[in-house]
Design a protein around this nucleic acid. Sequence first.
DNA 1: TGCCAGGCGACGC
DNA 2: GCGTCGCATGGC
Length: 284
Amino acid sequence: MDGYIFISYNRKKFSVLDTLTSGQCFRWTERDGRLCGTAFGRYVEMEQKDDGLTIYGADKADYQAVWRQYLDLDRDYDGIRRTVTEIEPRLADSAEYASGVHILAQEPWEALCSFVISQNNNIPRIRGIISRLCLHYGETAINGEFARDEADGHAFPTPQALAGVSEETFRQFGCGYRASYLTEVSRRVANGEIDFEYIKKAPIDEARKILRSLKGVGPKVAECVLLYGFGRLECFPVDVWIRRALETEFSSGTALIGSEYAGVAQQYIFEYIRRYPDQFVKKE
DNA sequence: TGCCAGGCGACGC
DNA sequence: GCGTCGCATGGC
């Protein structure tokens, strides 16, 4: 792959590995110390060392236009951790454990589609389904020919591409009962009925309402789409893992929910409880 | 082998 | 409005 850009920084905390292998995205794989994958239709490989980050397959313009925002490198996560830990001191261990994780600024459509697939599903299987859909319906990515995995070399399929896929075909790709959700979601996004530009600017409850008007999008998926696809850091997705944490560690309630960076705190808790599930066992 | 997974819609009350 | 149930599939 020709060309790379090196971003020098002294952010000791940010971890490209922890961020791209966290539960918020499904298309990155670590190979030989590099994070390999495709976002915004571009295949790249990222490699982090002490003095900075190298992105193979990108130049300076790509970095400014795409990767800087995608990795959310301009935000003060140290400050956010101070804020959320002050609101909720019991967050300290999680925030420390996952301090390398940023909230990705993913494409809204990819986030919507991915989290519709994610419901009542496990991460390895979600990755498999998304991989197959990308391979069959995604355009070849920029630098896609260099991808080590064939599906990685494809962009996420457009709404228009998936709007042409039948429910039966979605089932054949392993989507299960989510197949009918995907046909509706694809159709309503492709025909412009669901307008991401409008959602982007809408008040948060209006945005929630629009997303939840889609069959297959409930409270949890809507929060994920808003958090990971629209940068609404106050959104707080509650899945079975977070539910577990709320019933144990935070059983007396937490002021995090509804606060400005609740979604970031949620991500810290999610990573921590999945690593140390035994620390979140309900006591009788 | 069952249990479970980044939940949701339908239904009954 | 709230609790329950069925749901497709495969990772573990």
